[in-house]
Design a protein around this nucleic acid. Structure first.
Lengths: 253, 253
DNA sequence: GTTGAGCCTCACGTAACGTCAGGGCCGATG
DNA sequence: CATCGGCCCTGACGTTACGTGAGGCTCAAC
């Protein structure tokens, strides 16, 4: 008994070449060979292969996988814990992205018949639709997002303009604090961050500190936000993010 | 205005070299250059980059991504639909894996103090624990799995032996049908598949046709199952899977 | 006894970058 | 105004994780 390369490759859904490769680099050396030199994989070998593929799926390099599997201090339970942490992290991200796409689809459909043109008229290039998608992508908040959608949908043109003006004021404040050289974890910057959070809560949805931190990170990462802030002052976007984080830290959690 | 390579790389979380590479292969050519030859990325360029990274994350090759993004017939909505399908597929798989690891952890902890030794004694190598983990990995059934756990936990040594005997009978039947050359989608094979499904439902949990199909696939993929079937006849495992699929198709959905 | 499927070992090819090397741009600073 | 540090440029070779044959052995089956 024991399995040949072909059998193992079919079981595990990899190519024969991959098995050869893993043998070459010593990641998975079959326990035995026939007298003809054929590789013979034991059940234990196949189990090891499955662990390899598991970690590979999660994006680990082969030498890292070798290190993980070689660790003698790692018992079955610690492996499971590690795998669980890695998997749920990935799953969270994916679910957030799914939610983002769903809401984007919704926004796309409803937005068309409602206000697409009008919004463009009012805001020029700043399209809330675009921001909504990305926002959802980060905090994946099905709940908060739905809330936001409902409120936003009811807003009139006047509301939009007031909303935008308030937002602009906050940005002004941040710009002033930033160019004045005040630290991002200073009193003023944190107060502005809190004001920003309140602004969102008032107009859009209940913005927790956690969500707020997510927003801050996104501002830096997304050019549609940073592109709106950076023209005021180079480096303003990370400054705002840091202020948000400092404010969240101040607030407790 | 417009962004430099460094700025874009920081925004998107990629290296400068990656942007150079995408420029080289024509996947993402910056809209403009300064007189000094510096790349200048427009907001549209950055958006394109985000789409590229999105599909890259999902495992597409760069030339495939180029094709996707080049498709003139693809409007925003069809992109969203595609992304949604891809994402939810991945998310499903990940969630199933998370559930699998969770139940494996549970089984590991409770199993040790309960019956680990006894089960080993009875089955000599065929450890239901191991099978449970892998089963859960496929159909990720929190519900069905919990049910199974509860029922299994109550089984006595005698129950286990009857269970195993029934299982062996089914395998015998499959082996006979297989070696007799009867097709996997034939009457006999499908009946055996149905019997197998009933067997699981009786002893373990409510095995729907969908779950059953998942099991069939797993039997082929996992050496702990295939290793138990293949000794009866080479090729028996895929035969059983095909019979299960045929039976599920016959049953309607 | 030969034939076809499966296995072996080189060995070069490829995708998607990483990593220097050698050399311009440019805003601040002495 | 020189120069210094940071950012940018273009080659060009290195790396990872295999893909893809070439040429030849093995083995169950007809």
């Amino acid at each position: 008994m024991g399995f040949s390369v072909g059998q193992v490759s079919r079981m595990a859904g990899v190519t024969v070449r991959t098995l050869h490769h893993y043998d070459e680099i010593g990641l998975l050396t079959p326990g035995d060979r026939t007298r003809a030199g054929y590789r013979r994989y034991s059940a234990a070998d196949v189990e090891r292969l499955q662990h390899v593929l598991f970690y590979r799926e999660l994006g680990f390099a082969l030498d890292e996988i070798a290190a993980i599997l070689a660790d003698p201090g790692a018992d079955r339970m610690s492996h499971l814990r590690r795998q669980h942490a890695l998997l749920s992290g990935r799953a969270d991200r994916l679910l957030a992205m799914v939610a983002a796409v769903e809401t984007a689809m919704e926004a796309h459909m409803t937005g068309i018949e409602l206000t697409a043109q009008e919004r463009l008229e009012v805001f020029g290039g700043f399209r809330p639709e675009d921001h909504e998608q990305e926002a959802a992508e980060r905090w994946g908040g099905t709940e908060a997002y739905a809330q936001s959608q409902r409120r936003m949908a009811k807003m009139t043109k006047d509301d939009w303009e007031r909303f935008k003006q308030e937002a602009a004021q906050t940005v002004e404040g941040f710009t002033a604090a930033f160019t004045a050289g005040e630290p991002a974890d200073g009193q003023r910057a944190m107060d502005l961050a809190e004001e920003h959070r309140a602004h969102i809560t008032r107009w859009c949805y209940d913005c927790t500190y956690e969500i707020h931190r997510g927003l801050g990170d996104m501002y830096v990462a997304d050019p549609r936000f940073s592109g709106n802030y950076e023209p005021h002052a180079e480096g303003l976007t990370p400054y705002i993010r840091d202020a948000i984080h400092a404010n969240a830290a101040r607030a407790g959690e």
